[in-house]
Amino acid sequence: MTKFLEVKNLSVSFPTEDGLVKASNDVSYSVDLGKTLAIVGESGSGKSVSNLAIMGLHNRATTQISGSAFLNLDESPIDVISAPEETVRRLRGKVMSMIFQDPMSALHPYFSVGNQIAEAWSLYNEGSKRDGMKRATEMLDLVGIPSAADRVKDFPHQFSGGMRQRVMIAMALVNNPKLLIADEPTTALDVTVQSQILKLIQEIQKEFNMAVILITHDLGVVAEVADNVCVMYGGKIVETSAIDEIFYRSQHPYTTALLESIPRVDQFGSHRLKAISGQPPSLIGLPKGCSFAPRCQFVSHVSGNRCTTEDPELTEKAKDHFARCFLSTEQIHSLTGRNVKA
């Protein structure tokens, strides 16, 4: 069965003076229409770069990209990595759209929000400027901006942070794309506004049957909206599976450590947080072996020095559950105690 987006062995590297930055390393994932894939990772884990590559937003002259990313369109599948730049450009905003973290800097300060939405619309639709503004008003209404008709000519600085993100969503969705990539869409927002925006994205996804890739560092947000999860570390996917598998039967020490290190509002008590020692790796000249090995508390449970000499492959540990670890399922579950029946 083919899914709407299928990413295979996608690598993105940036040559710099200090060496080659392997920002995204042999990454594969897929997402289907109507589903949400969450890509979780810390800063520098490479969670954004592969998606920017799918959108064709890297400068091809200064970026090394390999692998493939097929959009299975009705007409015929297109590999957006190898397709000509012009072809990919004609897919942007129409088939695939992206929204970003900071809605203030992502909107042009000199143009009215209606103008910016109408511009995106008129790229793929015949119609006058007035039709564009009419469509913009409809979109603003759809994303829940009160009295949209009055506000369509307002400028981004006249909106609050949450409203600006709504404007971004309206702009991204004006041509009914099939894929929405949301890069930390709520990180810059307050928590009550965050839940509004997440709810909005979910509603619109249902209405238009979109595939959504949600890039985030917040496992709470993942738990709230995702169907499938990719956990990234040091430019690689270390674990990927359906959401409950990840949260309740995690097979990678990084995922379990991350889940245990974050405080939760629903768990009281002055227990000490289980911090992950050390620092995230630099993406230049990654160490030999597993990138998480320097911070992993289970290294000694793997025979020999395998963790520091050999990089584990992403292997299927359970049905549709892949992890990059030498430990067997039984070993890791007995070590972490994470094998909860849902």
Partner: peptide, 23 residues
Amino acid sequence: DYIRTARAKGLSEKVILRKHTLR
């Protein structure tokens, strides 16, 4: 960031330069 947004919308480099960057 807003130039990246303009690119993500699917605008051509020419329009991005003339309308968004130069303005």
